[in-house]
Structure formats: structure tokens, C-alpha cells
Design a binder for these strands. Structure first.
Length: 293
DNA sequence: AAGCAGGGCAACCGCGAGAAT
DNA sequence: TATTCTCGCGGTTGCCCTGCT
């Protein structure tokens, strides 16, 4: 049995609100309050609108102290930071920004901030692992990441962001498979570079730890702890002889199309330090990862 | 000046959670 | 306890505006 409609869609007005409707709604709520019942409110207020529409209009435009447009850099940082920590929970983010609505922040993110982030994050747009001589991300790239880092008690930001460090995010299943089959394979097989050792662990419960291992997970559900994970451990074959090469090499996989989840992971991913171990969750097939190394 | 494309944003849709019955 | 209903949320749509050709 389906859900009963919240209002009679045949008899409610839709589309943009007129100044008269705004005035009616504002006047009614200021005098009577919402009464805790949005469904009944439009009838009482003399509006031919769906209750949900009234609620949206009030919350996003009519209630006092709403601010629109002109996000400050400080607000940008807060949004980045919270997005990295909690993802697209716009209402929670909005709660941290006085006078901003979740809808405004969502729109601002989708139309501007995300692009800003991608522009900053995106080195040359190749789908291939770069060659050993490919360019490293620009300093601004790392600066951006610095400002985006999610809370991660186990890893310092310096460790994450040095050009010799690593950054990880998620890519789609296809790319992930591609990475397994081709990119990782080529890396594993690459002779005089770093050695990648990949192993599977069933039902691992290990998470981000102080020794630099990190498990990428859905920050909202935090549900990846019992998932099957694949461990990718990178070891230097010869710590004494590869420093120069390490500095030159910057292998990257860059996606041209970033979805919401990718962006979130892009921000929320962090990385490793001393032993260069990475974890990612195989079961999250929608997830995508990108590896700078 | 007209047509087109892309971006921005207001509003809608559908779902999950929780309250009420 | 099961069912129904409302609220609140995030994702998506579609209109309008602006800039480009």
C-alpha cells in the first residue's frame, strides 16, 4: 500500500511563490506560529499550497535572519571541513553557518565549491598512471587539501600532504577494476620502482590506526569496519637508492567526472605515513578511489 | 539581434525516521 | 505491536538569466 499524498495535488498551486503568498504565509506564521502541523497550515493561512511547500518557503526564504549569497572564505572553509567530516548532510552544515539554509549551501556547493575543489584538485586530466616524470600537484593543490582535511587523529597533515605523501579517494567500480587490472598490475610489475604488495583479508576489522593504515569508509554510516578490504602495501625495495626516484615519481589516476561521493571521498580521504600502507573497502562498489603517490 | 548553451537557483519529489494512534 | 501520518532531509528537476556565437 502506497503512502497517502500529503496534499491534494490537483488543487494546490505549484511553482514560484508570489509576493502575496509570501506575505500571507509570513503574516500567518508570525501571528499564529506553525502550530506544529505544516499540512494543515496552508488551509488555515488561506493558501492553496502544499504544506511541504509552505514549510520549504518559510525555512528557506521567509523566516527571519536568512542570508543569501556572498559566502565568505570562512564559510567556505567551514563547509569544506564539515563536508569532509560528515558528507552531504546539508542541514547539519547549515546549523554551523548562521543564517544559511541547507538548500543554499547545497546549491552553493553544487554550483561553485565543488568546481572550485575539482579545479584545484585536478592535475592533468589523464586516466592513466602518469609516468615517472609526470608533474606533481602544485603547491596550491596541497594547500587546498590542507584546508579540506577531515578529522583524522592518527595522521598529521604534514604527513598527508607532502609531495612524497599519498592521497587517496574513491573511484567507480569500473575504474577500480581498471586500476586493479591495469594500473596496479603495471605498478606491481614495474621493475625498479616501488613494489606494491596486494593481499586480501576477509572480514577485516582493522581501521585507521596510528601506524598509518587507513580504511576508507562511508563517513555517514561508518559501516566499513566489517567489510572485506584489500590491503595495498607499498614498500620501497631499497630505501637507500630510491629517494631521488621517489621525488620524481608521481603516479596519478585522475577522473574526469567527479560525482558527489567521489568529491566527498576526495576530501575525506586521508592517507598514510611511515609504512605507506593503504586500505580500501572492496565491498563499496560505488566508491571510487584515486591514488597519488 | 536572434538563437543557443551553460550556470545558478528555487522548488519539487520521494524516502527514512519517528511520533501518533 | 502494527499501521498511519507528518516532518525533515538530500537529490533532482526545470525555469530563468547571462554570456557567447
Amino acid at each position: 500500500m502506497g503512502r497517502a499524498p500529503c496534499c491534494d495535488k490537483e488543487n494546490v498551486k505549484r511553482g514560484p511563490w508570489s509576493p502575496e503568498e509570501d506575505a500571507k504565509l509570513k503574516d500567518y506564521i508570525e501571528k499564529q506560529g506553525t502550530g506544529g502541523n505544516w499540512i494543515a497550515l496552508p488551509h488555515k493561512a488561506g493558501l492553496r499550497r502544499c504544506g511541504k511547500s509552505c514549510r520549504l518557503r518559510w525555512l528557506n526564504y521567509l523566516r527571519p535572519n536568512i542570508r543569501h549569497g556572498d559566502f565568505t572564505e570562512e564559510e567556505d572553509k567551514i563547509i569544506y571541513s564539515l563536508y569532509a567530516s560528515i558528507g552531504s548532510r546539508w542541514s547539519v552544515i547549515a546549523a554551523h553557518l548562521q543564517g544559511r539554509t541547507d538548500n543554499d549551501i547545497k546549491n552553493y556547493w553544487n554550483t561553485k565549491l565543488k568546481k572550485k575543489l575539482i579545479a584545484s584538485m585536478a592535475p592533468p586530466s589523464h586516466h592513466h598512471l602518469a609516468t615517472a616524470t609526470s608533474s606533481s600537484p602544485s603547491p596550491s593543490h596541497y594547500n587546498m587539501i590542507n584546508s579540506l582535511l577531515p578529522y583524522n587523529p592518527s595522521v598529521s597533515t604534514n604527513q598527508l600532504l607532502t609531495p612524497q605523501g599519498m592521497m587517496m579517494t574513491m573511484m567507480g567500480q569500473q575504474q577500480q577494476q581498471l586500476l586493479y587490472q591495469e594500473d596496479m598490475g603495471s605498478l606491481v610489475n614495474s621493475a625498479n620502482s616501488n613494489k606494491f604488495i596486494m593481499s586480501h583479508q576477509e572480514h577485516s576489522q582493522e581501521q585507521s590506526t596510528n601506524n598509518g593504515i587507513m580504511l576508507l569508509s562511508d563517513v555517514r554510516s561508518g559501516s566499513s569496519t566489517t567489510s572485506t578490504v584489500t590491503r595495498v602495501k607499498m614498500e620501497h625495495l631499497d630505501h637507500h637508492h630510491h629517494h631521488e626516484e621517489d621525488e620524481r615519481s608521481m603516479s596519478s589516476v585522475v577522473m574526469e567526472d567527479y560525482g558527489m561521493e567521489e568529491i566527498k571521498q576526495l576530501i575525506s580521504s586521508s592517507c598514510t605515513s611511515s609504512n605507506n600502507s593503504l586500505w580500501f573497502d572492496e565491498n563499496k562498489t560505488e566508491d571510487k578511489f584515486m591514488l597519488y603517490y
